[in-house]
Amino acid sequence: MALTLNINGKSHTVAVDPETPLLWVLRDHLGMTGTKFGCGISQCGACTVHLDGAATRSCRVPAQAAAGMKITTIEGLSADATHPLQKLWVEMNVPQCGYCQAGMLMTAAALLEQIPNPTDADIDAWMTNICRCGTYPRIRAAIHRAAEALRA
């Protein structure tokens, strides 16, 4: 069966079982491997994408449920890695192994869309993704700095 998905502003038609989780359609069918597989059960957030702007864990979303929505992945967060979060992530040396960071960035970007000036408590409530390397303190600091940059 063919599904049409709107990803990062482009329309893609894929022949796929519509129940296939969006994560695997992105990764295997479309070769967009920036979105990561970590747990498959909505626990870790490595697979986070935006569906109509909302941070969503794509490992548990059947692809057909995303049809008709605006899907944004890490590859489409900005045209050239210039989203303030991306720039600060590099500058503040946030990633360690980096595997969780696409999900972290997508979640943080959605947070800033909703709450332009988040408190620590907002960050705690939104950033429920797992980072085994322990980069949380830097993620928190970088989100605060990005909020400043976006206000300026």
């Binding site: 920036g34 890490i74 590859e75 890695a81 992530w89 590099v90 990633p95 980096g98 960071q101 696409a102």
Partner: peptide, 10 residues
């Protein structure tokens, strides 16, 4: 390696 992490290209 950071640059390739933040745009998903790594």
């Amino acid at each position: 390696t950071n640059a390739s992490i933040v745009d998903g290209s790594g």
